[in-house]
Design a protein around this nucleic acid. Structure first.
Lengths: 348, 348
DNA sequence: CCTCTTTGTGGGAGCGCTCCCAATCTACTG
DNA sequence: CAGTAGATTGGGAGCGCTCCCACAAAGAGG
């Protein structure tokens, strides 16, 4: 039953080698021979054995995307879905297959890393949302598999693509200061993740630059998801903040919910800036001022960069930082007089 | 540089075969030999070559999840993310790696199918959200790769897992009728998808059973996403519907937006029932009455069923239909008097 | 007509692994 | 203490492919 090159070769009256040449589009096959072989291949529904091929060439067209430790909520937030989608799209375009590894908090990180390693057949890896001290990174360095980090790299010499988290956070907080808010708090992501830490640094920097003191009581750590934003905002309301920089839009939605429940209005009573610019952020109540992260571009570029690395078109360390821009809408303050982007019409 | 069994064997002073036995946990290796070999493997950071292994055993621990044609919006809807997450979790648990294939509307379906086929090394496939006439299905049948459909099967004898779309839709619409609504429309999913068609059938059935006529003008086709729900609802408002059964929660959110924009209230003026029971549906305004689909369970079970098939623990056709239950909240009507589930407290 | 290149084709070797069988070693039986 | 079953180990074969080299066939040039 199992077909192989030899089988096709026999049917076409040629040799294994010729069939191989036809499949791999090598030159030096007589056009009519090529046509005959191709016909048989189609007719027999023959697909060359990927394992055998990989074995001999020592390379596969498989990339892996690794998300070391996802919680259930990771997937109600569109960030990862959008990232995954842009990665699969680019991978398909470049003719790579994508292997998806999502770590599970219950599983030991170490065992997970082992499993990923054992199964990533020669391809490269994309690591998203790595936490500090993830055991996978040292393993990979050790084993010399090409890989690229999506986000801030835990070590300086690694390949990575990131957005300018610090700069964008700083711009967001400066904007809140410009809008006249005084007591500005922040809701951070999990601080063992580089992106969350960088955004917090940006927050501190902006306050310092404006000559304001950083009050540690106004810094509350969240988990990037909606419920944690809700909780954190409730804590900040106790601290009488009048504005908040929230490190993700999902948390900002949670914060909005907490603020509304407390009977306060945005942006009349409290100013708020998010981070991500999710599709839903433009139509929240009120529309959210937020930092636009080019999520899809990050995914797409990450894939391209890894392919460059694998195919020798780039040398490590291969690093790129994309800008992230502030999108001013209504949640950060009544702004019709100074930030008149577009029509500048206030909500009715 | 490249390590192999022979290399480890030499270092441990044993043969290739023994190393293989250690790696595969075969019995009949003297405990101290086993320990020595394991030590060397760890020390050398050795990982057996997956391709070679697959080549000889003719089986791999790779499953593929195929989403034949996703649009960008597919991934702002939590349905697929939740499905993917439950599948990866189960796959990891069963020691399978997961390959993810997301079709792209621009790419020819046929070429996509070919690529999937060529790269799915011996493992089985999970097909989600298949559209009718997808060329992948006949290919798979032809090539005899084990696969399982998530959703209604396009052919009767295929392996599949589905939820009772028809029954649940019928219950949802019956509920609207029970709430006293008369002119009940529906927003369907893309009707070339089995699940969408089945939900529409349920809608028709419920109306017929209640002795109501089905008005084709009250049936509007959407694309399962928020914007299409918004558009469809605007069309239905023209038709003066007083209630709507919406085939996905995302579309229901869009419908809610359209209704609010039109200055109408839910559930005072219009009753609405969704489908999916996404996490956000419990906290929408008003909380959405919807059909709870056990998305995660579907993903998890699908993976388990495919593994059963691959490992010969089940014979095709292997089929399962899960119940979906109506969750009554506030959007379907003021219900404190007849559907007093829980406290039955109305919104204040 | 003979050499020399070019084009097209076939077959051997070998990628790293598993599986089978044979060989060896051990421990126990009568 | 021979005899044997069982445990342990080693090496050959072969999975299906690509790559290299050898060779045949077909032109090109003198």
């Amino acid at each position: 039953m199992n077909q192989n090159l030899e089988h096709i070769a026999r049917l076409a009256g040629v040799s294994r080698s010729t069939v191989s040449r036809v499949i791999n589009n090598h030159p030096n096959v007589k056009p009519e021979t090529r046509a005959r072989v191709q016909a048989i291949i189609r007719e027999q529904n023959f697909r060359p054995n990927a394992a055998a091929r990989t074995l001999v060439t020592q390379e596969s067209n498989v990339l892996s995307l690794v998300i070391p430790q996802a919680v259930a909520s990771t997937f109600t937030d569109p960030y990862f879905p959008m990232l995954i989608q842009s990665i699969t799209a680019k991978a398909n375009e470049l003719d790579y297959a994508l292997m998806l590894w999502i770590g599970n908090s219950n599983e030991m990180a170490d065992r997970f890393a082992q499993r990923v390693l054992e199964n990533s057949l020669f391809g490269g890896l994309l690591i998203a949302a790595a936490v500090n001290n993830d055991p996978l990174i040292p393993y990979l360095v050790n084993v010399q598999i090409p890989f690229l980090i999506i986000g801030p790299p835990p070590l300086p010499e690694l390949n990575f693509i990131d957005v300018d988290n610090l700069g964008a956070a700083r711009a967001a907080v400066s904007h809140l200061i410009d809008m006249g808010w005084k007591r500005i708090g922040t809701i951070t992501g999990p601080l063992n993740m580089g992106a969350a830490a960088a955004r917090l640094d940006g927050y501190r920097l902006a306050l310092q630059e404006a000559g304001l003191t950083v009050d540690e009581a106004l810094i509350v750590e969240g988990r990037f998801d909606e419920p944690s934003g809700y909780e954190a905002m409730n804590a900040l309301l106790q601290q009488q903040v009048d504005a908040v920089f929230v490190a993700s839009d999902m948390m900002a939605f949670g914060a909005l919910r907490a603020i509304h429940e407390a009977g306060l209005r945005v942006p009349e009573d409290i100013g708020i800036v998010g981070f991500d610019d999710l599709p839903a952020s433009a139509s929240s109540t009120p529309p959210l001022t937020t930092v636009r992260q080019p999520i899809q571009e990050v995914g797409s570029l990450a894939t391209q960069m890894l392919a460059d690395l694998l195919q020798g078109r780039a040398e490590p360390p291969y690093q790129k930082i994309l800008p992230a821009t502030l999108v001013v809408r209504q949640s950060s303050g009544s702004n019709s007089f100074r930030w008149s982007s577009g029509g500048g019409v206030d909500s009715h």
